[in-house]
Nucleic acid binder design. Sequence first.
DNA 1: AATTAGTTCGAAAACGATATCGCATATTTT
DNA 2: AAAATATGCGATATCGTTTTCGAACTAATT
Lengths: 338, 338
Amino acid sequence: MVTIKDVALRCGYSITTVSKALNDYSDISNKTKAKILKLCDEMGYVPNLSARSLVTQKSYTIGIIFEEVTGIGLQHPLFSKVLESFKNHVEAQGYDIMFLSRNMGKENGSYLQHSKRKQVEAILVLCGEFNSNEMIDLYKSSIPTVVIDYNFPKVTNVTSNNKKGVTEAVKYLADLGHTKIAHIYGGLYLEIGRQRKEYFEQAMKKFNLELHEEFMVSGAFFSKDDGYNAMKELLSLEVQPTAIFCASDMLAIGAIQAINEAGKNVPDDYSIVGFDGIDIGQLIHPRLSTIKQDTEKMGKVAAIQLLTQINDKINRRIDETIEVDTFMIHGESTKVLK
Amino acid sequence: MVTIKDVALRCGYSITTVSKALNDYSDISNKTKAKILKLCDEMGYVPNLSARSLVTQKSYTIGIIFEEVTGIGLQHPLFSKVLESFKNHVEAQGYDIMFLSRNMGKENGSYLQHSKRKQVEAILVLCGEFNSNEMIDLYKSSIPTVVIDYNFPKVTNVTSNNKKGVTEAVKYLADLGHTKIAHIYGGLYLEIGRQRKEYFEQAMKKFNLELHEEFMVSGAFFSKDDGYNAMKELLSLEVQPTAIFCASDMLAIGAIQAINEAGKNVPDDYSIVGFDGIDIGQLIHPRLSTIKQDTEKMGKVAAIQLLTQINDKINRRIDETIEVDTFMIHGESTKVLK
DNA sequence: AATTAGTTCGAAAACGATATCGCATATTTT
DNA sequence: AAAATATGCGATATCGTTTTCGAACTAATT
């Protein structure tokens, strides 16, 4: 490895001067600066960030906590998009992203420990056990943190405007003439699960639609199987709904499958609206009508927030929930009530 | 931040002794070791890895190069799975993974520079411009590197057994009675594109099937749209194939869409076999028959290779291509020729 | 000519850890 | 009792940087 010392020795200047050339100091002549930079290039010198961060306290890395409960991990169609967008935005500012695990060398440790150890400057929590003690320690620490889809005092939360989205979905179905609208809700262990369920109920009331108890079924983990099973439950009812609003696209896809298996059709027999706007929804037949989350913007907003907090000398936590607008995708899974 | 010095001051021992307690040195009594460790815990001391790596030369980070040309990035259904598996395996050994970009602070630089800068111990190349000068510099460097799906002298290459997979696909269609088999091949700019096309031709010969020039159409970037367009081309032919082998599942999905739009049916009119075994393939209707790549194993093998190279004192490059077996998924997109 | 001001550079002290080696003290062996 | 050997600990150098501050030199001002 070629170090700054090697460069200094070779060009005759001191280490200090070489460092100054590299860091755009003003007290160095343009001539020597040029000479030094040229030599650095020739010798293939690359600064050692470990050494640098030791004194500057800047690591130019942002930690990502991405702990997927259901096990799909990185392929999570929504979070991976948010992450992609986030990644692009922070990389443009010279930051790299690093996944934080709980393993540290031989031992294990908390995310907070791991973050300190690796000197990350900020943390993005994409998913995880949001309200575990470990996470709470993290929120309370001095490391800038942004959380997606979870609200905690003094921690910036980036989320979709679920109220607007859910309301729009219900209004859309109502406008198509549907009155008997069911809801397959996602896991209430998540804030978004609870929210979407609540906003659904509010929207039904708002549009003067009757809310049937048996039309509310659980799609535990937002998964396809959960949607399939929930729809089976709905199919067994005496009074049938004519439309179903699902708290996620995967739930919707599962529901459609159950409907097909029962010999019924979407959208002829049931209109289906999903939530998320994942790619798969537009690949299946019928193309899903759904509320799309603006993942690109969510990632961007999260990036901006974190970068601001990093550069903020006072390092204050911005205590706010930033809601990103959703928009509706008009697919083929919905139809005017005959 | 609480440093080792703080701990030393507080417990009365020297910095050296505290360090020894933390690193399982033998020349320290169990009693003082226990005392020190307890204090470390109480004070919330976490070692600074930047400082440590400065002297030990170990960063416990592995760099990932994931440069998706088509722009879908992280959501790439195949690479994200390989990465997920890789991540889990290296994390179990205490390593974290970090995405390498070309941005470094204000300036830009090559991947190699970036790797040196951040002191990554090894690199996994998932996708990128495999044969760019920049990449070649990387391969030639002393940093342990594993590349997925690309072959370069002295660099370990982890890939699927494409020959076996393609042959199995063709055999499967042949066994169903198909003789007029078309191939929508993927971009020949990629090794896997070239390979699968070649192996297809070989397999056709092997099973004594006639190879029609016009049955070979390009699906440039393996995407759905490319498959759609390629199938349109096939549909315009006078003599129609009865089966199509597609170099990727996305190509297959696009092809099916084109077939449906033409008022034809899969598998009644055309049997379709894809390649990859991505999740979406099993969510659409009809469920795709396809050659599944063992992404879990590919990630695992890549991890083992890299960890071995890291721990190898001689740091030799293992010059070999490791092929991971594929296996067939029997879906609903194929049928006996009527 | 003397002072001031501006420029360009370098010595040395951090930053937070590990590694080497030497020095006591305690324990065993002769 | 002396010598040899363990055992437990610490002083110090080192890793590769940045940063502070002062020195030296040059140019401008009085």
